[in-house]
Design a protein around this nucleic acid. Structure first.
Length: 209
DNA sequence: ACACGGATACTA
DNA sequence: AGTATCCGTGTC
């Protein structure tokens, strides 16, 4: 049982500052966890890649919840992705946790992931939710009042690099992805992100045009 | 290279 | 009801 999780005030700052500050902190989830080595910041306003831009439900989530609240959604119908709400500072935002360096509950994470390769356990946003057992049922949980889930302060110094965000089509040029320099546990190394195609559509026969 | 797969928000 | 889009992963 851990009691010294990061307080709510940690998430009441500028989202870009928070996304950087989270690197090197430990994400703890029901006995499993790892050092955060990759995050992405999304801004509630003026960021077309943020869910709040096109989803009324996401805007309602920001209105309704406090800083430090879990935001979980299903992406591509396959993977749960976990974010934390940043609110009450100069701007509101949502920070995606993209990769961890596994350090706690590794046997359990290996079992959920079906691999013993430490680099394959949490090196992506969908991988880490699978490793930690995170699903849509965890949406709107609180990182700052629970004793099962939360963040621990940075354990060691971390050299932070900024790069463009991964997998998005809109506002793809914002350098709002933050990683540990030369970490072996990130999803995509700096500068290696593939550009998303401008459009991809399918006709009635289900064939890509 | 592509299949996998469902929530969300449109159009009507 | 039907359609378009989407912050990914594993295997081909």
């Amino acid at each position: 049982m851990i009691k010294d999780f990061l307080p709510r005030t940690f998430f009441q700052v500028h989202p870009l500052e928070c996304a950087r500050a989270l690197l090197g902190c430990e994400l703890v989830w029901n006995g499993c966890g790892g050092l955060i080595v990759e995050t992405e910041s999304y801004a509630v306003f003026n960021d077309e890649a943020c869910h709040t831009f096109s989803r009324p439900a996401a805007r309602a989530f920001v209105e309704k919840n406090r800083a430090g609240t879990v935001y979980v959604y299903l992406n591509y119908g396959v993977h749960w992705l976990i974010n934390v709400l940043v609110k009450g500072g100069p701007e509101d935002g949502i920070i995606l946790i993209r990769a961890l360096e596994p350090i706690r509950g590794i046997a359990e994470m290996e079992k959920r992931r079906g691999t013993n390769d430490p680099r394959a356990l949490c090196s992506g946003p969908g991988k880490l939710t699978q490793a930690l057992g995170i699903t849509g049922a965890d949406h709107e949980r609180d990182f700052c009042s629970g004793k099962q889930i939360g963040f621990l302060p940075r354990r060691r110094p971390m050299e932070v690099v900024a790069d463009t965000r991964i997998g998005i089509r809109r506002a793809a040029e914002f350098p709002w992805r933050f990683l540990e320099h030369e970490s072996a546990f990130v999803s995509v190394k700096p500068g290696k992100g593939k550009a998303m195609p401008a459009t991809r559509r399918k006709n009635k026969q289900g064939q890509t045009e």
